[in-house]
Simulated assay, not measured.
Amino acid sequence: MTIFKPAGWLRALLAAALAIAAGAALAHGVSEPDKGFLQGAQGLHLLPYLYLGAKHMVTGYDHLLFLVGVIFFLHRMKDIGLYVTLFALGHSTTLLLGVLNGWHINAYLVDAIIGLSIVYRAFDNLGGFRSVFGLQPNKKAAVLIFGFFHGLGLATKLQDFALSPDGLIPNMIAFNVGVEIGQLLALGMILVLMRFWRGTASFARNAIRGNIALMAAGLTLAGFQLAGLITQ
């Protein structure tokens, strides 16, 4: 792979930071119509919750950036399926437990950790742990652990709406199923784009740049959330 020149590093960092800064405050955002529905819904609403779960994952760019980092250098579908399953297991567990048990965790803190999970994965893709620290953390365990935090990010947003206890458990299961459907849809699109990119000569030249950009995006997301934590 072509080694990055300093100017290239700067351009990638700046471009990614500007792109994320334009919408960082909207991470895990919920539209006004969706807010109205969540705050007023009583009883079973399986299909609407299924839809909202899928919509949240497909439009949740922090989750999508992490998934891009996870599969960036994975080629075999067996490996992709294993890592995505670990991620799904992690965020499904804490999403359900967080909402049903009423875990109240600061949303800024959780979202900052989610931003740092993107940084972690991109740094790992670049071989940073081996070259800087002389060790290699367990990749599968890291994906599972960060999956727990991504699920908490979903749970903290749902807790903002004082969901009705009437039908809460089946509604949350439907929402979680929707999240998994959304993840599969998003993953399919990501895999198509990645397969196309890997088939071009530019992938080898720009793979390092791509992961540097992921790191910059994650740092920007984490920075915005930490700023919110400090100033809330």
Rank of each mutant, 00 (worst) to 15 (best):
A174Q: 02
Q225L: 01
K55Y: 14
L221Y: 02
A213S: 11
M77R: 12
A112S: 13
F133D: 06
T59Q: 06
A217I: 03
G69V: 08
F149H: 13
L50D: 00
G98Q: 14
H91D: 08
A142W: 02
L219P: 00
L152W: 15
M77K: 10
L26P: 00
S117F: 15
R11G: 01
Q42A: 03
A27G: 02
L226S: 09
M1S: 11
G69K: 07
F66K: 05
G43K: 03
P6W: 02
V177R: 03
Q136V: 06
A107G: 11
G182D: 06
Y83F: 14
N125E: 12
D166Q: 14
N138V: 04
M172G: 00
S131E: 12
F175V: 13
F129R: 05
F4T: 03
A7N: 06
L44A: 12
L46C: 02
I3Y: 02
T94M: 10
G188R: 09
S117M: 15
K157L: 07
N101I: 01
L96S: 10
R130G: 15
N176C: 07
H104T: 08
R130L: 15
T93Q: 06
I80H: 05
G199Q: 12
G90H: 04
N125C: 11
M57N: 13
L221D: 00
A21Y: 06
A12M: 04
M1I: 02
A15F: 11
M194D: 10
D34T: 12
W103I: 02
N138K: 04
G40D: 04
A227L: 09
V143R: 05
G8H: 01
L229T: 08
A222Y: 01
Q42F: 00
G178M: 03
R205I: 08
L158C: 04
D166K: 14
A141E: 01
H56V: 12
L86D: 02
F149E: 10
I20R: 00
F37R: 03
A186F: 12
L65C: 07
L109C: 03
A227V: 04
V132T: 15
L163R: 10
A12R: 02
N101T: 07
L97K: 11
I173T: 02
H150K: 15
K78T: 11
P33M: 11
A54V: 07
F224K: 03
R205K: 12
A207D: 10
L10C: 07
L126D: 00
I212M: 11
L64Q: 04
K35G: 05
Y120V: 06
L50C: 12
V132Q: 15
V192F: 15
A217C: 10
Q225W: 02
L214W: 07
G167H: 04
N206E: 12
A112I: 01
N138I: 02
V177F: 09
I181W: 01
L154S: 07
T59R: 04
Y49I: 04
A155H: 10
L109D: 03
F175P: 03
T94P: 06
L185M: 14
L116N: 05
M172Q: 06
T156H: 11
H91W: 11
A142C: 12
A207Q: 13
G8F: 00
A88Y: 01
A107N: 07
Q225P: 07
L86W: 09
V30K: 08
G115T: 14
M215I: 14
L109A: 15
T59E: 06
F161G: 08
A107K: 08
E180I: 12
H150V: 15
D160H: 11
I80S: 05
P165C: 05
